[in-house]
Computed example of a mutant assay.
Amino acid sequence: MAIAAYQTALKLQPDNFEIYVELGRVFQNQENWPEAIAAFRQAVELNPDYCWSHKYLGDALAEQGESIEASSCYRRALELQPRIDPQA
């Protein structure tokens, strides 16, 4: 149900990176890593200065064994917000 709601919201606001972040979090909670990664990548593309998009993308990539790219995402998140809580 949440996925459908976010997808509807994206039809109304296709450039709203926050919707992609929240959609990615739903997919992440369902362990649907390919969809989570796609949503987080879109969030990063729309707003490359939002640290949490990079952090969540890193988490999803790490779950898929993409440790090099995940590390790059984590580094970028820390550049944007040096005091980021890795457990968030």
Rank of each mutant, 00 (worst) to 15 (best):
L10H: 06
L10T: 09
L10M: 12
L12T: 07
L12E: 13
L12P: 02
Q13C: 10
Q13N: 12
Q13V: 09
D15G: 01
F17E: 12
F17Q: 03
F17A: 12
F17V: 02
F17I: 04
E18P: 07
I19A: 04
I19T: 07
I19P: 08
Y20I: 03
Y20W: 15
V21S: 11
V21R: 15
V21C: 14
E22Q: 15
E22H: 15
L23F: 04
L23Q: 11
G24M: 08
G24F: 04
G24R: 07
R25Q: 07
R25S: 11
V26T: 11
V26P: 11
F27C: 03
F27H: 10
Q28V: 00
Q28D: 15
N29Q: 12
N29G: 06
N29L: 14
N29W: 00
N29K: 12
Q30A: 06
Q30R: 08
E31Y: 08
N32E: 07
W33V: 06
W33N: 01
P34K: 04
E35M: 10
E35A: 14
E35P: 11
E35S: 14
E35N: 13
E35D: 13
A36R: 02
I37V: 14
I37H: 08
A38N: 13
A38G: 11
A38M: 09
A38R: 13
A39Y: 00
A39V: 07
F40A: 02
F40V: 01
F40C: 06
F40S: 02
R41D: 12
R41N: 09
Q42V: 07
A43Y: 00
A43H: 01
A43P: 05
V44L: 05
E45N: 07
E45V: 06
E45C: 09
L46M: 00
L46N: 05
L46H: 01
L46G: 07
N47V: 03
N47I: 02
N47Q: 14
P48C: 06
D49M: 07
C51M: 12
C51V: 04
C51N: 14
